[in-house]
Amino acid sequence: MAYATARAAIGDSEFDRDTAVVARPGEPGTYDSELSAGWTIIRAVNGGYLLAVVGRALRAALPHPDPITITAHYLTASEPGPAVIRTETVRAGRTMSTGQASLFQRDEEGREVERIRVVAGYGDLAALPDDVRTSATPPSMPSYEDCVSSSDAPAGGPVTGSTAILDRLDLRLDLATAGWAVGAPSGAGDMRGWLGLADGRDHDAVSMLLAVDALPPTAFDLGLAGWVPTVELTVHLRCQPAPGPVRVALRTRNLAGGLLEEDAEVWDSKDRLVAQSRQLARAPRP
């Protein structure tokens, strides 16, 4: 399988630098971050990237290393620039700890505005039992080499505005779910693809928070164009991903009242279901 030739290490990659948080002296549980413009789509910072930033702050604040379950409510659109994350340890147990966090930015008048509020349960993915009983199966899709990359996309399409995030991803879409790029959406509400990071960094638990929200929205496959802002996103991590790109499958079954859900599954190179998520988002407005 061909893959990104550069091999950035976990902990020393663009993703790690751009999601870094720094503890604020004298304010326990408070962390500063700089939201990068490199992870924007259309006119806002990507929601999965934001969740990864907050996830790092909670990892630093809690005694356990990995988000097992994490739920975010997106209150206002985040912008590139300085941000502060304030965390609180709700409970610290033997195998799992629970925390909450909010990310704030300053508006044009200098007032602090809450962008995202998160509640999460952290544990140790490496310590989980290895007993697996599942009826879930990996998505049926072409090989990495037979999927299409963003560089293959024609000019135009439903995305107007920033596509900076695509330069940071090694994304290969299943052609059956990419018809929207040439004006021929399937109408099924599906999106599938292989996902890696452009510098070759392997995935870990934190990058899974990005992975569930990194593909084009299923709204495009429904024939809708424009920004699809996230209202709420819940992610469950099931195990640490094996090296290599992951397969991500998104599906929407119901669009009503201007809102749609996206159910995501992420499968690693060992055919393991490593992450699941459900997102509620606003459908693009005409």
Rank of each mutant, 00 (worst) to 15 (best):
M96P: 05
A9V: 11
D213Q: 04
T234M: 13
Y31K: 14
Q240V: 09
G244C: 13
L259K: 10
V206E: 11
N46I: 09
M191F: 00
G196S: 10
P25K: 01
P243N: 03
P25S: 07
P185Y: 01
E114M: 10
G123D: 08
S149Q: 09
T230Y: 02
A9L: 15
A176P: 00
V90T: 08
T95C: 11
G26R: 05
T89C: 06
L210M: 12
V182L: 09
V212G: 13
P158G: 02
H64N: 11
T163P: 12
A101P: 10
G200S: 10
P82N: 02
D130F: 01
L50C: 04
L35Y: 04
A60T: 03
V212H: 04
G226S: 11
A211E: 08
P245Y: 09
S186H: 09
L103R: 05
R133D: 08
G200F: 09
G187V: 09
W194I: 08
L125Y: 12
G189N: 05
G93I: 01
R133Y: 04
L259I: 13
R115N: 10
G157S: 12
A4T: 14
S78M: 01
S97K: 08
V90D: 13
I70V: 13
L35C: 04
G193E: 06
A8K: 05
L250M: 13
F220R: 02
P129V: 02
A264Q: 06
L222I: 03
R285K: 15
Y31T: 09
P217W: 01
S143I: 07
D202A: 09
D107Q: 08
L128H: 07
E79H: 15
S143H: 03
Q240Y: 00
R106V: 03
L51C: 00
A153K: 11
F15M: 08
S78V: 02
G223P: 15
V118Y: 06
P65Y: 06
A8D: 13
S162I: 12
W267C: 13
G29T: 07
T234R: 14
V118L: 12
P245Q: 04
R272W: 10
D271H: 09
T160D: 11
E261P: 11
L171N: 06
E112S: 15
A61V: 07
R86P: 08
V54A: 13
P229V: 00
P67M: 04
S151E: 11
D221K: 12
A4L: 03
D204I: 06
V159S: 10
A205M: 02
D152A: 15
L280C: 09
D66S: 09
L273E: 01
T234I: 03
R17D: 01
A198I: 05
A61P: 14
V90L: 15
A37I: 07
Y3C: 01
G179M: 07
A23S: 15
I42C: 00
K270G: 12
D263Y: 03
P284G: 00
R133I: 07
P185V: 02
Q100I: 00
G244K: 11
E265M: 03
